[in-house]
Computed example of a mutant assay.
Amino acid sequence: MSRVLYDLCGIDERLRFSPFCWRARLALAHKGLDVETRPWHFIDKEVLEFADYDKVPVLVDGSEVITDSYQIMAYLDRAYPDAPALLGDAMAESRARFFKHYAERAVAPAILRTIVMDLLNAIHPKDRDYFRETREKRFGRTFEEFHSPAKGLAQLDAALEPLRGQLTETDFIDGDAPAAADYLLFGNFMWARCVSTADLVSNADPVYAWIERMLDQHDGLGRNAMRITDIEGAYR
């Protein structure tokens, strides 16, 4: 059975930075499933017409087409029940859904305010006008007005306080080993790592130690991923 994941790319096709795509990639690795990742750009909407969707990730697993990173996790648990669970039973799934919202509504906005100009630089040139126009409309201000590393880092520091409490008691959000909740949140840190050199947390922070552990999961999938600093002349 062939498996294909449509995955957002940047100025180099190997630069894969979407937090949502990282969720899907880590979930597939968690299940021990091979996948071909196909690079996709923001303006390549027609490429995904078969999925009736205009965003990534999109997973094609044989005859199945699954959109949305969270739905991909749920699908993988249904389709591959003998592999390690991602979401688990109904109670665990409800907790994972909380971390989905926490990652998207508390953590991601703080990171974005910190790295948005680095992110714009990492995006493929043909995508930049689209990205700027759609996101600035969403923000109600220009990137230059929105960008504030000092405010973003302060916002992130406050948002991470509950996570610090958890990580002083367990190595991972999901306990002794990572699962859906870890991947749902860690995708945001891979997003920042791939496009920016910003230090989001201090190395004395329990969150930093968790990030380091997550980078080493699945044979270093996160640690070995291309970063903007790996592309000659790309980081300014």
Rank of each mutant, 00 (worst) to 15 (best):
D129E: 14
R138Q: 12
L120P: 01
N203L: 04
L167H: 03
M190N: 08
F139P: 01
G140V: 02
D129T: 15
T142R: 12
R193V: 10
A204Q: 14
N121I: 09
L184K: 06
S202I: 00
V201D: 00
S196F: 11
K137S: 11
A154Q: 10
N121M: 14
L153P: 01
V195Y: 11
A181W: 02
T134G: 07
I123R: 05
K137L: 13
F189W: 12
H124S: 12
G175L: 08
R164S: 06
A180Q: 02
A198V: 15
P178R: 01
D129N: 12
L200W: 04
R193E: 07
I173F: 03
M190G: 00
F139H: 07
N203F: 05
G152F: 06
G165Q: 07
L156H: 01
Y183V: 06
L163Q: 07
A198H: 11
E161K: 07
Q155H: 13
A158R: 15
W191R: 05
E169G: 00
M190I: 13
I123T: 10
S202F: 01
Q166Y: 12
E161N: 09
A177I: 10
L167S: 05
F172C: 02
S148T: 01
K137P: 03
L156T: 00
A177L: 08
R132Q: 13
N203P: 13
E145G: 08
F139W: 15
F143E: 00
V201A: 00
T142M: 05
P162G: 00
I123A: 13
L185M: 07
W191K: 04
D176Y: 09
S148F: 05
G140P: 05
F189T: 03
T197Y: 07
K151T: 12
Q155C: 12
E161Q: 12
Y183I: 11
T134D: 11
C194V: 14
E161S: 13
Y183A: 08
I173M: 03
L163N: 00
F131A: 14
E144D: 04
D127M: 14
R135V: 02
Q166H: 14
L167A: 06
D118E: 06
D127L: 09
A150L: 11
P178L: 11
A159T: 01
V195P: 09
A198K: 12
V195D: 15
P162A: 01
D127V: 03
K151E: 15
A179Y: 04
D129I: 13
E161I: 06
P162N: 01
K126R: 15
T142A: 04
Q166F: 11
L167C: 09
T142N: 04
S202W: 00
N121S: 10
A198C: 14
T168W: 07
P162T: 00
G187A: 11
K137N: 14
D118N: 05
R138C: 08
A180K: 05
L160P: 00
A192N: 07
F189E: 12
K126N: 15
T142D: 04
R132A: 04
D176T: 13
T197W: 06
A177D: 10
L160I: 03
D129Y: 06
T170F: 12
L185R: 03
A158E: 09
D157Y: 04
D176W: 11
L120I: 03
E161C: 08
